[in-house]
Simulated assay, not measured.
Amino acid sequence: MKFRFIVILIVWLGAFRGTAQTAEGDVSWWNILHGWEVGDPGWRNWMIISPGYFGPNALPVPHVQKGELFKSAEIELTASNHFHKGDPTQDISGYIYIPFAKNTVAIEMYGVAFERFAFSEEIRNERYSRIKDGKGTAIGDFYFSTLVQIIKGRKFPNTLFRFGTKTASGNMLEGARYIDSPAYFLDLSFSKKFGNSETGALKPFAMIGFYSWQTNDELNLQNDALLYGIGTDFIKNNWLISASCSGYSGYKNERDRPVQLNFDLRKDFHKKALRFQYQHGLQHWEYKTIRVSYIWKLNQDK
């Protein structure tokens, strides 16, 4: 039953593209607005492929890893609300985590299953969108990551390696929601726990890595970025409180250096957990996001 549920969710996240609003047939308004004439490069070449010119889920900062794997396989269903004066967005996403090989290796699969947006005329024009009224729905990208535990339980901090890939499964390029091209990232994360969970433990963590995505610039076909994150967990009994700062820094300097603050509150129960997250964009990702998640733990240990 659990395996069947995982398969269904994988199909739901990755294979299903669904139907979504497409660009209007008459785009003469776009041609006039941006001065496009016959013989000019196609409209896709006008778009700027960076997080500052797309929706909140197009090129998000990868979630911060914390130096160690957990024993419990999990399925997480999340509802998110992205607050932005010119681009309020809501979405439903899913996440699957499966450890194996005696908890030395794990895989992650996640993505946005459904997104609803309604951006302003100013945002539409700035992003070269061809959705005239700025309203519609979209299906997001599918991500797949492999995690390898390098060091754990020694004097040296716990060390975890991650290699992640972003598919081009997301649609609605014409609405500047998803970039319709692949990306990948790799990083090392480190952590060290001080104290115990019964009386309260602190676990500082840090992450450093590399992030790269494909662009539409013929002279620079990809943008390469330094990926980073730093924060601290506070753990007591079945509660987790976490705060971190994360981001990446692209080399083109076209709103491609997003920085955000992350706050996380989680309560674990016997076979389930509840999670509340808040993300506050500081630069080049100008959203304030609230996420609420329900988590199924597929085995009791964690």
Results as ranks from 00 to 15, higher is better:
F119H: 09
G209I: 05
H284V: 05
Q214N: 07
H82P: 05
D301T: 12
A243E: 07
F70R: 15
E76G: 09
M207L: 10
I10C: 10
F263S: 10
Y251K: 05
T215P: 02
Y248D: 00
F163Q: 15
I139P: 02
G195V: 01
V292N: 07
S28A: 06
N158E: 08
M47W: 07
A176R: 05
E174S: 10
I10P: 08
A183S: 15
P99G: 01
Y128M: 13
L160Y: 10
Q90L: 00
I98F: 12
G18E: 10
N57A: 07
W36R: 15
I139A: 14
Y251I: 02
D180L: 12
S50Q: 00
F276V: 13
I98D: 06
L160H: 15
S242E: 03
F269S: 06
D187Y: 13
L147H: 08
V105F: 14
F194A: 10
F163P: 00
Y184M: 07
A118I: 05
F144M: 00
G39I: 05
F83G: 06
A79Y: 06
E198A: 09
L186W: 11
S169Y: 11
V292I: 10
S129P: 01
I139C: 06
G67S: 01
I150Y: 01
P157A: 02
L261C: 07
F234Y: 15
W239C: 02
W285V: 04
G136N: 01
S120W: 02
K155C: 11
R127P: 02
Q283H: 11
E74M: 08
M207S: 08
F161L: 15
E68V: 11
I92Q: 14
F276C: 05
G136C: 03
L219A: 15
L173Q: 14
K85S: 14
V259C: 08
A23C: 00
T19S: 10
T19W: 04
D40M: 13
E37P: 00
K288N: 14
K288C: 07
Y248S: 01
L226R: 13
P88I: 13
R291A: 06
